[in-house]
Write a protein that binds this DNA or RNA. Sequence first.
DNA 1: TAAAAATATACAAATACTTGAATATATAGT
DNA 2: ACTATATATTCAAGTATTTGTATATTTTTA
Lengths: 113, 113
Amino acid sequence: MFSAGNRVEILKAIAHPVRIKILQELRKGVKCVSDFEDFLEIRQPNVSQHLTLMRRYGLIDFFIDGRLKCYFLRDPMIPDLIDLIQKDYKEALPAPACCPVTKRGTYPGQRQR
Amino acid sequence: MFSAGNRVEILKAIAHPVRIKILQELRKGVKCVSDFEDFLEIRQPNVSQHLTLMRRYGLIDFFIDGRLKCYFLRDPMIPDLIDLIQKDYKEALPAPACCPVTKRGTYPGQRQR
DNA sequence: TAAAAATATACAAATACTTGAATATATAGT
DNA sequence: ACTATATATTCAAGTATTTGTATATTTTTA
């Protein structure tokens, strides 16, 4: 249910400035549609469109409370992912120490290192 | 350098089926352009297009070895992100225990839980 | 049951992304 | 210098995503 395969599609569903903000906000707690309307300063149909999309991918779900729809996080990867993109990495990965390992092998003219 | 802000843009740069495969492959080690060509079964210009895009975002870099360009991972978030999307989550997040907390407050007619 | 409030849907217009084909560049070996 | 190899760039065509406007649906309250 919540494992790889369609994970790229799900990443795509997350990788949008508005949707990330919605997810970050939902992480703090349940919110209804009109809360986002104020917070994000976008129009109501657009909020609904993003919420509906994320619900299709199982990222979020809602329960109904009177005339409010209360959205909440559903996909357990989301909190971890939010942490990840907010994490502050100090250094680039180290450049590879030595020669390339490619299918074509080491190119004849390669300088030795 | 490797912290939030442009993180959404970077997620978008990652969230593509071909680019994820390239990153997963690069995680195993340095690879040159034509290695991907074989492995991904897409045409060379397209491989270069994806590599160039990811380099623009600082996700990867290359060194030159003879006439090969040897690409490697640069953004330290990538390995963690790859782990994350491959992780197998068993359960959905628990539905919120109680009432919604929205800006509009609890709706008058809300059923007590 | 009519009106209001909250949200969703349909669909078109605008925009962004992806890919392919052709061509360009750069380096190595002859 | 010429040729072959490896990779990049340009640009157009195709496709997908995003947003707005208008309208629909649903539930609540009067």
